[in-house]
Amino acid sequence: MNLDVPAADAAAPRKVEAPTLVVAAAIYGGWLAATYWHDAIPVPLLAVAGGWLIAWHGSLQHETIHGHPTGSRRVNAAIGFPPLALWLPYAIYARSHVAHHRSPAITDPLHDPESRYVTHARGVAGMAARAQATLLGRLLLGPPIAVLTLLVEERLRARRAPVAVLRDWVPHFLAVALVAEWLAWARFGIGHYILLFVYPGMALTLLRSFAEHRADLSAPGRAATVERARILGLLYLNNNLHAAHHDRPDLAWYRLPAHYRTNRARLTGDARPAYPTYGAIARAFFLKRHDMLVHPAHRDAAP
């Protein structure tokens, strides 16, 4: 799998990063244990553990896309590839995220594939954006909307580049089949797995990205910072310090806090820390829209 990474990531060869390998071992070991002993775990606790593991695995995939924990792209991709969340092929996520970092206009939906903004509020895209404008909508409706959006986009891409689509999806489906085989052997129904692992895991990931970028910020990558996130900081591998990550995408997750502390004034700019905690985000936006749906660059042209 040949994946380009942001230029800063490829600047120098890396040694093996033990903290990330420990996280990877905890994720895969925890996933095997939780799925194997699922019958012995109370359902609420299983949902918490399952959601944590899926979201944590997404954070690990993010690290591998940025060239961690080894100097080998193939090894890193192999570490991040297993589709524990079932729905998103690793190759598609990697390309999308690299394009996000390389975008000449981060947050503009015409240039940034990970933008939450739209060019206009009409049609299905506008409806999807409105459905996720509040944190409640993001957590409840965001997961199915993300899956449906991917399927629609991939169906359109299949018409233009069927071979490329097969190249992305065939290895993914084979790996999903192995996950499904393990779940069947552990007598963990796929429906229960989606409900107790995938859905809460996607919701936790969407909590992180809900207020992650704002078009009005001057920070690197127009990225917001959640300054205090003790437990969720571990879950997100310090990606709550998102301006620091965009400033130095080559830094391993455990080096981001020191970089943020050293460069706090520059990274926050005139915005200061955008949010003190994820609790503050929840209190402010649980039932209130976070931002305008239409990107500022397109508001004059929007009806």
Rank of each mutant, 00 (worst) to 15 (best):
R157N: 00
L45G: 15
G201V: 10
P69S: 15
T70Y: 12
V294S: 00
P249V: 09
T134V: 13
L84P: 02
A78H: 03
R272Q: 08
A121L: 02
H66T: 00
A18H: 06
D247K: 05
W56V: 03
M202W: 09
R261I: 08
L166Y: 04
K288A: 15
A133H: 03
I281T: 00
A211L: 09
G50N: 06
R261M: 12
G123C: 09
A271Q: 10
L204I: 06
G51F: 01
H101Y: 09
S59L: 08
G80C: 13
R222N: 14
H259F: 11
V75R: 00
I54N: 02
T64Q: 11
L84E: 03
V163R: 01
G80S: 13
P273V: 14
I106Y: 05
A177L: 14
Y254F: 10
H120E: 15
Y260D: 07
F188E: 06
P273E: 15
G233C: 13
T268Y: 00
L235C: 12
L3Q: 07
A302M: 02
H298S: 08
S218R: 07
A146W: 08
R299P: 11
L53H: 00
L237W: 02
A25Y: 05
P200N: 06
A280G: 05
R102S: 10
V43T: 14
A243P: 06
A129D: 01
G58W: 02
H62F: 14
A302Q: 04
P162L: 00
G233K: 07
G279D: 03
E153I: 00
Y236L: 02
I231Q: 11
A91G: 04
D270Y: 04
E153R: 04
R248P: 01
R102M: 12
M1P: 10
L53S: 06
E227K: 01
R228E: 14
R74C: 13
I145A: 03
V176E: 13
P200T: 05
V75I: 09
T107S: 07
G201Q: 09
N239E: 10
T225I: 01
I79H: 01
V23A: 15
G67A: 13
L46I: 08
R116Y: 00
P6Y: 04
G221E: 00
S115P: 03
A271F: 06
G279A: 06
L60M: 14
A77Q: 05
H259K: 09
G233N: 09
I190A: 13
A24D: 08
H97I: 07
H295F: 06
L60F: 10
V165M: 09
G58M: 06
H172T: 02
R160F: 02
R138I: 08
L217Y: 01
A26Q: 10
L166N: 01
R261L: 14
A186S: 13
A243Y: 01
K15R: 15
G137S: 13
Y199T: 06
